[in-house]
Computed example of a mutant assay.
Amino acid sequence: MRGRKVLLAGLVFMAAGASTATAAQAGPIASGRVTLHGSPAVVTVTYTTCEDLGQTRTNGVFTSFTNAPPPGCQVVLSNRTASMVLCAGRGSIPPAFRQDPWLQVGPGETRPCGITTTSPR
């Protein structure tokens, strides 16, 4: 009797996992948002899909960002010669990417923005 309970619990878990994965692939994602902060320019892009949306050109000089992508999405900031994936959270934009950058949303992984720690003395 005990063996049946374990097996049944395993079947329920597998079925729930399969339906969650199917729903995630077929349905819309939680919305994502990225904001570039400058002075005085501010650009915010909100999206509901991680499909490659092409590049969005921005106008202005931006020094920082706030990025809130849903799981499985990434935001890429690029200039004419290079690109970088924005981390999730808040961060600074390197000088090479500050003037009129392009934004691109697509599938991919996003790491959290750095956490600074201090060592005990």
Rank of each mutant, 00 (worst) to 15 (best):
C87N: 02
M14H: 07
L77P: 09
V75D: 01
V75T: 04
L103N: 11
I29Y: 13
K5Q: 06
I29S: 12
R98I: 08
T118R: 13
G108N: 12
I93N: 02
V45I: 08
G114E: 15
I29M: 15
C73P: 03
Q55D: 09
Y47C: 01
V75H: 01
C73Q: 06
G27L: 09
A9I: 10
G32M: 00
S78F: 08
R33Y: 00
P70A: 13
R4I: 15
F65K: 01
T56S: 15
T49K: 00
L8Q: 10
A15F: 15
P40V: 00
F13G: 01
V34I: 15
Q55W: 07
S92G: 06
T44L: 06
H37L: 08
L86Y: 02
T49Y: 01
L8M: 09
A96P: 03
P107S: 15
M84E: 14
R33S: 00
R4F: 10
D100W: 09
L86S: 04
S83P: 05
T118E: 07
D52V: 03
Q104F: 08
V43C: 11
F97C: 03
P107K: 15
T46R: 01
G114R: 09
S78T: 10
V105C: 09
I93F: 09
V75Q: 04
L77D: 09
P28C: 02
V61R: 14
E109K: 13
S19R: 13
S31W: 01
G60T: 00
G32T: 04
F13C: 07
L53G: 09
Q74L: 06
A15T: 12
A30I: 07
L7K: 11
N67K: 00
S83V: 10
A30G: 10
G108C: 10
A24G: 12
E51Q: 09
V76G: 02
D52E: 07
A23S: 14
G17I: 03
V105K: 06
Q99E: 14
S78G: 10
A9R: 05
A23V: 12
V61L: 13
V34P: 05
F97V: 05
D100R: 14
G89A: 06
S92H: 03
K5L: 06
S83Y: 07
V45Y: 00
T81A: 00
S92K: 04
K5R: 05
I29V: 15
V45K: 07
P112S: 02
M1P: 05
P107L: 13
F13K: 02
P40Y: 07
L103R: 14
G72T: 03
R111H: 03
A41N: 07
V6K: 12
G32P: 04
H37S: 07
